[in-house]
Design a protein around this nucleic acid. Structure first.
Lengths: 134, 134
DNA sequence: CTAATTAGTTTGTACCACGAACCTTCTCGG
DNA sequence: CCGAGAAGGTTCGTGGTACAAACTAATTAG
């Protein structure tokens, strides 16, 4: 049955979560990284390099990522006001709708996965996961 | 503080675990998928399409993946004995050493992440994660 | 005002993933 | 037994992802 190997089970859980998110995003022709990009932009209007820090990517990778998202009308670039070297990236209405849709379905799917747990167990899991990531 | 949003915390935890594995693998010039490949081959000697099922990839993706791993001497192809259409993939000594090394460091890192949990909490986490993935 | 720094883009390389076309090797029905 | 179709892999073309290095434009330091 469900063994208690912490490392294995965390690894498998992480693959399950990531694959789930990738699959749901893929239905809207979004990659994992594009989805993360939109997720960040829901709460921020960062510069290119702030985006790089958020996502852990090189600035040249960000250029391409934003290029492709912009081509699809999901984000826009805005020139910085004071410092004209910087570029701020914002999410568009289309991008926001897509991000919200994917996030919603993802939450539903996670709920299904954890349906076999009691409410107390779900709280415990959320709390332990929260302590690890913080 | 560590809030108790289950979906968010599971998502963040999964990114933490995956990024950790990707970073550790990257030190040996392995991608996540190459590492998973070696991980599967530690316990199996699958055909190409069995590999595809394990990893959730198209057979054409497997061809390239195994090509690159073979070029680095991490795996070998063997022609099937009875059915000569099939190709079995095996891990080499070099590949096994690499997989073992990465797995070991990964386990250490997970141990560090969960060091703030009590032994009982770690058992609980392992058990809850195990029930979700099973 | 020049020199160094910083933000971002471009270019070249490699990996990753897919579908479609293709080859070889079975397998099955007649 | 043999020809049609199915099955296992590979190849090719396309596109996303990631990085480093070279480059441009704008800002800041001296």
């Amino acid at each position: 049955m469900t063994d208690t190997n912490l490392v294995d089970n965390l690894a498998r859980l992480s693959f399950l979560v990531q694959n789930t998110l990738a699959e749901l995003a893929g239905r809207h022709d979004l990659s994992l990284i594009q989805t993360r990009l939109l997720g960040v932009l829901r709460d921020h209007e960062p510069t290119m390099q702030e985006l790089g820090r958020h996502l852990g990517l090189d600035k040249s990778s960000i250029s391409g990522l934003v290029d492709r998202a912009q081509r699809r009308g999901l984000v826009t670039r805005t020139a910085g006001e004071t410092d004209r070297r910087v570029t701020r990236v914002s999410i568009t209405a289309d991008g926001l709708a897509l991000a919200t849709e994917v996030a919603g379905v993802f939450a539903e799917r996670i709920a299904e996965f954890t349906a076999g747990l009691s409410p107390a167990e779900r709280r415990t899991l959320a709390e332990l996961a929260g302590r690890i990531v913080s």
